[in-house]
């Protein structure tokens, strides 16, 4: 198991700080490249604001907030909904008002008036196009499980997925798979038998898929995958047709925020139509407003008839964070994947 943790300070504005200028401190588990256009636009809209952006792995972000080594952030952004919920539940957030609803049909994209979702990122399959030349591509979980069984040789050592143990997002997706899909256990076993390659991050998995080291990626974050596939003819993205979990990237204002008002403005911006359009058109992320689609989704898979399962922001996500539950789940997961 290896982790890649990179922390970087990025100061967009190189001008010296003048007295009125405020600094908005963002701690986020999001690729800086994927979110940069949003930050730019917010800075353009609020010229006196300088954004201080620090990138974390989801689990690291969680650990940092529990046991701080850095000054407290103003806004916390992460795709690991369960960890976000846990942080809010434990009082790390403060309530904010007047945050716009992206759509009235998405109550699950918000918890109380503290945690706000702003993206809609399906969990997808990614495959290497060359490898699957003349092969049938599995479009459902069940089909994948079948192929793993029937074409064990083909997949052997060449299928990759998230590491549930080290990645917060990986754990969330794996555990929610268990809740949503009754055959998950069998699929995990199959993955284990195929000696699936497990990694902490989507980017690594995607790189290995492009190079052909891996032929199939299971449960990858759709936003990054689609963005990669746009510029890379080696890989293709499949939104599973039977069901697709959807990760809602969420943000909250930290309890000890120095610039709470600005932080609230930022979250409001993320959910505003301007923010949502920027997400759709300029970033690797996918907007919560599903009518906007994404420039990374030419096949418009996001609006296909797939059974999307957004992971609701709510206290039930605390269940898999229970010490015993977590241990048991990781135990069975590790056993299945034979690590």
């Amino acid at each position: 198991m290896f982790r890649i943790a990179f922390a970087c300070y990025l100061i967009f504005s190189t001008l010296p700080l003048i007295a009125q200028e405020s600094v908005l401190r963002l701690y986020s588990a999001t690729d800086i490249s994927a979110i940069r256009p949003l930050l730019h636009e917010f800075e353009t809209l609020n010229p006196e604001v300088t954004i201080l952006y620090r990138e974390f792995n989801t689990q690291e972000l969680y650990d940092e907030l529990l046991d701080p080594t850095l000054p407290p952030p103003d806004v916390v952004i992460s795709s690991a909904s369960d960890l976000q919920v846990k942080l809010v539940n434990d009082g790390f957030a403060q309530p904010i008002e007047d945050v716009p609803d992206v759509s009235s049909h998405q109550p699950w994209a918000q918890w109380s008036n503290e945690l706000f979702g702003f993206t809609y990122e399906p969990i997808v399959f990614v495959y290497n196009k060359e490898a699957f030349h003349n092969r049938s591509i599995p479009h459902t979980h069940e089909a994948l499980a079948e192929q793993l069984r029937e074409q064990a040789k083909f997949y052997q050592g060449r299928i990759g997925t998230y590491d549930a143990a080290s990645s917060g997002l990986g754990y969330l997706v794996a555990s929610q798979d268990e809740v949503t899909f009754s055959l998950t256990g069998r699929l995990q076993e199959s993955l284990g038998r195929a000696r699936a390659d497990i990694h902490c991050c989507t980017s690594l998995l995607l790189t290995r898929l492009t190079t052909g080291d891996l032929v199939f990626g299971y449960n990858l974050l759709g936003s990054y995958a689609m963005a990669k596939a746009m510029n890379n003819e080696h890989i293709g993205v499949i939104v599973p047709e039977d069901y697709a979990l959807v990760i809602v990237r969420s943000a909250f204002v930290h309890r000890d925020a120095m610039e709470a008002e600005l932080a609230a403005d930022f979250i409001a911006y993320l959910r505003s139509s301007a923010g949502q359009k920027t997400i759709a058109n300029n970033t690797a992320l996918m907007p919560l407003d599903r009518t906007l689609g994404s420039h990374n989704d030419p096949e418009n898979q996001l609006n296909s008839s797939t059974n999307f399962h957004p992971i609701r922001l709510g206290p039930e996500l605390l269940l898999y964070l229970d010490q015993h539950k977590q241990t048991q789940f990781l135990n069975s997961w590790s056993q299945a994947l034979g690590d």
Partner: peptide
């Protein structure tokens, strides 16, 4: 003692959707 909390327990509390749970 074996603890395997059921998902439904938390779902019941969902009826008060904005409330936190400890």
């Amino acid at each position: 003692v074996h603890i395997d909390l059921p998902y439904s327990g938390f779902e019941i509390l969902q009826l008060a959707p904005d409330d936190k749970i400890y």
